[in-house]
Design a protein around this nucleic acid. Sequence first.
DNA 1: CATCGGGTAGCGTTTACCTCA
DNA 2: AATGAGGTAAACGCTACCCGA
Length: 358
Amino acid sequence: MRKPLHFRTPRLVHFLSFCPCAAAPMELGLSLGDAPKPFRFVEKQPQVPPPQRVLSRPDLGFCVDLSIGRPVVGEKEDDEEKPNQREDESDGNEDPPIQLDLLPHNPVPRHLTNPYQGFPWPSSENDEGEDRTASPNSAASSFQMEFGLYGGGGNISCRRDQIENGVMNEVGESGRASSRASDEDENGCTRKKLRLSKEQSAFLEESFKEHNTLNPKQKLALAKQLNLLPRQVEVWFQNRRARTKLKQTEVDCEYLKRCCETLTEENRRLQKELQELRALKTTNSFYMQLPATTLTMCPSCERVTSTSAASTVAAVATSGGKSTEGVSKRSGFAIAGRPSSSSFPFSAKTQSHQSTAS
DNA sequence: CATCGGGTAGCGTTTACCTCA
DNA sequence: AATGAGGTAAACGCTACCCGA
């Protein structure tokens, strides 16, 4: 049997970790390639190793579970059921980058936890769903449910009769052909939309949390427990996987959107800084092109005089120099040299003395 | 050893039905 | 009561993989 959810086409695999950016508390690493492992649903948070983080999205009704390390999943009893399974599929060392718990935080209606005697719901379940995940060895696997066929509401159509009369054979591993009959079977009954009961759905959800794919043995067992056709169980799991994937895609889109916004903002900021640096460079090169100013001081009256370019320098220094100073402060470095003569009389004086001495 | 056909199972898409606002 | 939207069971087609001839 092929490995479930082992996508053959390259797809984005997300590796989440914490990001220093507060706006985006996680960092997305994207790699192209086969997803190493199907999504698995963690069983109990206390069993999760420390590096695991749970990103809860109450508004979306699910949480992202980031698991590092061997996923805590159910039994490996199906190994002997998959003779064709490759070895790398069964070692379990490849961890899913993201584990999504797509169940609503209160997955099972309150009324379901009590009224059904014998329904093996975890007693520790609470409203937050923190402990909603039953252990893999919960009683769910050994409970023979007495649910009625095809939901609760008057939907027991001719289909049930067909099954009971053997018209619809047990759709086992080789029963797909029979299950793919046309909408109108030989009894003339049109395909009726059946609705699984809440109990059946809840039980299937529990099973899905343990393993999102079924081997034939599990499928048959589930079908027997829920009084459903194996084909129905199979279809339910297919649709459930599709829903999981859809939600996963939504999560991916949401996160990539946030990443895009963050990167756009960062890009804007860097562009602005680049513009400032370019302006600074222009101003700097302007100064460098100016001829050196030689200041001289009259020893008698102590008046400072300069060469011909000094007036220009002074003009630039008093006007443009201010902005330059501001930029240099922001940029974290100071512009060295060529100050205005009025700002630096003593250095000018020193220079004049040196020049006059020579 | 390579090829081919049958069988099996999963996925994507679509359809049809049901529920609910 | 009619209706449209959303959810979902089921069907269909396709593909990948395995296995035996």
